[in-house]
């Protein structure tokens, strides 16, 4: 009775990218050794690995700082984005008056606004969160608004026929209809929150105990500590993938029973 989607990927599907990764890393190690490329130009993977082990306290502390900013910003973007989207679908006048500013915020590069925000807001972590939120906000607003509006006309008629009030239409019809759009937006926003946090850190250049991964990259660059730069870079990429995977799983758990996007 319940048709299960067939998993027609071959057994080596997960193996192939792993083999490619190992091969590329091996080639990298080999070419650096053979050509005697100095580690301050391109460090060998083994050197980067050693740096990981040596600097792991510093690097993971910085990762946690950046990740915290990105996560807080993502939560803020979701909350503000949902609130704006809900207001937009309830009142067209408000949507018309506010949407241009949401777009303005979206198209202005965050590197250009970040210095201002860092000057205006004394507390640096707060300033960084604000920057990252601005970057992550738009997909939440835009996607959720489209989702809340993309309601089956027949179902809307049906709700009217059975005397549903505005609240019931919103919660029982618009919100579930918007869920696939929301999760598609969330995947984009999660990545953007991390990018926003890193970019804002670059602009702020904060050191001390609050230093995030972007600051480690800046410092490592100045000190020509290229292996540490690579290690920090790998951590940022890893954090981005983990964040993407986490929200993807969240979306799958919510949607896979009924929506084609999550089969």
């Amino acid at each position: 009775m319940k048709p299960r989607p067939r998993d027609d990927r071959p057994w080596w599907a997960w193996l192939a990218p792993v083999v490619v990764g190992i091969a590329l890393t091996g080639f990298w190690e080999w070419i650096v050794a053979v050509r005697e490329i100095p580690p301050y130009i391109v460090p060998a993977p083994s050197v980067i690995g050693a740096t990981f082990v040596k600097d792991h306290v510093l690097l993971f502390a910085s990762l946690w700082v950046t990740l915290k900013i990105a996560l807080v910003a993502l939560v803020a973007a979701v909350v503000i984005g949902l609130a704006l989207a809900f207001v937009f679908v309830q009142n067209r006048a408000i949507e018309m008056s506010l949407l241009p500013y949401a777009i303005l915020l979206q198209v202005t590069p965050i590197v250009a606004i970040a210095p201002l925000i860092i000057i205006w807001v004394d507390d640096t972590p707060t300033a960084l969160v604000i920057c990252a939120t601005i970057v992550a906000l738009f997909p939440m607003v835009a996607n959720t608004t489209v989702g809340l509006k993309s309601v089956d006309r027949g179902l809307l008629d049906l709700f009217r026929l059975y005397g549903a009030n505005r609240w019931q239409v919103l919660m029982s019809l618009r919100v579930p209809s918007a869920a696939p759009y929301f999760f598609a937006g969330l995947r984009v926003s999660a990545g953007l929150a991390l990018i926003g946090a890193v970019v804002a850190e670059f602009v702020a250049g904060t050191g001390g105990s609050q230093s995030g991964l972007a600051y480690q990259i800046l410092q490592a660059g100045l000190q020509l500590n290229i292996p540490r730069m690579f290690a920090a870079l790998i951590l940022i990429a890893g954090a981005g993938i983990a964040l993407f995977a986490a929200v993807s799983v969240l979306g799958w758990l919510t949607l896979h029973r009924w929506h084609e996007s999550a089969r």
Binding site: D152, G154, D157, L158, L161, Y162, L173, P176, R257, W258
Partner: peptide, 28 residues
């Protein structure tokens, strides 16, 4: 009480059959 059946089944894809059938009662 009147009821309407559309040309399309017009079911809520996110809700199980029982919840779909219960809709007029839940809304009331």
């Amino acid at each position: 009480r009147s009821a309407f059946v559309f040309q399309q089944p017009t079911l809520m894809p996110w809700a199980r059959v029982a919840a779909n059938v219960a809709l007029p009662l839940t809304l009331a």
